[in-house]
Amino acid sequence: MTAPPVRLEALTKRYGSTVAVEELSFEVAAGRITGLLGRNGAGKTTSLRALLGLVAPTSGRALVFGQRYSELGDPRRVGVSLDGIGTLPGVTVAGELRTWATALHLPPASVDRALAEVGLDDVAGRRVAKLSQGMRQRLSLATAFLADPELIVLDEPATGLDPSGIRWLRTVLRERAGRGATILLSSHLLAEVEETVDDVVIIDRRLHYAGPLTDLTAGGTYRLEDRFFTLIESQEETVHG
């Protein structure tokens, strides 16, 4: 049986006495867009960083295509846009992507293709330090798309984008998924996620729901926001009641 693109198995991460995530288990289905949802501090970024081998789980496992990320034979299978991955000082937009392309053994044409896909080809020579927040987000997405990966992992990809940019992002992600890519994105923008994803994973350190968006919302009868808070608040009542 083929391993799913993403599988978390009882993932727990503690920082001293602070529990970031606890016994978190879910899978991400191939060829679909999955939204990892939670409030600030719910453990979304910790989960993604554990998946990518950037933090070591206290217990449990986070697997990519059935393996730990560090054991993945070809890193080009996974594209990443994650907060905290900085750029070299003074580098240009195109220079940043050329650095990544060289590291991944990609042809120069991959840089031009990625710039065009995210709408930055007109500012290829501009220094990254001079970019707006929205343009920086597009550059981060271009880096994730560079190798035409099977799995794309995005941490809050709509941050800094204006309404037209968010609409553009939705279209680009849908096109990627339509070509067979699997996308896992974290977000706290519930209304936007509702227009973008196929599946939903809701966490608040622990798992509250994992499955199709249509099942959670009864085919659109309920809003994602309403179902989200119902799940979170009912768990809080159980814990504190």
Rank of each mutant, 00 (worst) to 15 (best):
G79V: 04
T238F: 09
L189R: 08
F145T: 03
S234P: 07
T143W: 09
R14K: 07
L207W: 09
I202Y: 14
P75T: 01
S17G: 09
R205G: 05
A218Q: 13
L97T: 00
I33W: 06
P75H: 04
R136S: 14
V19L: 15
V172Y: 14
L24R: 00
H105P: 08
R61V: 08
L11T: 08
G16K: 05
L216P: 11
G180K: 03
R206S: 12
V6Q: 04
W100P: 09
A56E: 13
S140G: 12
F65H: 06
R174D: 12
V6S: 08
R170A: 04
E195S: 07
V197Y: 03
G43H: 04
L54D: 11
T46E: 11
L48P: 12
R7M: 01
D155S: 05
G90W: 01
S186L: 02
R77G: 00
L161Q: 05
L161F: 11
V197F: 01
E23T: 05
P57M: 03
G66C: 01
S81M: 09
E195A: 04
L36K: 06
E96S: 15
S25C: 06
T214A: 03
I85K: 02
T217I: 14
S17W: 14
K44T: 13
L37E: 15
E175G: 09
T12M: 08
R32H: 05
F65V: 03
V153G: 03
R49L: 07
R179A: 06
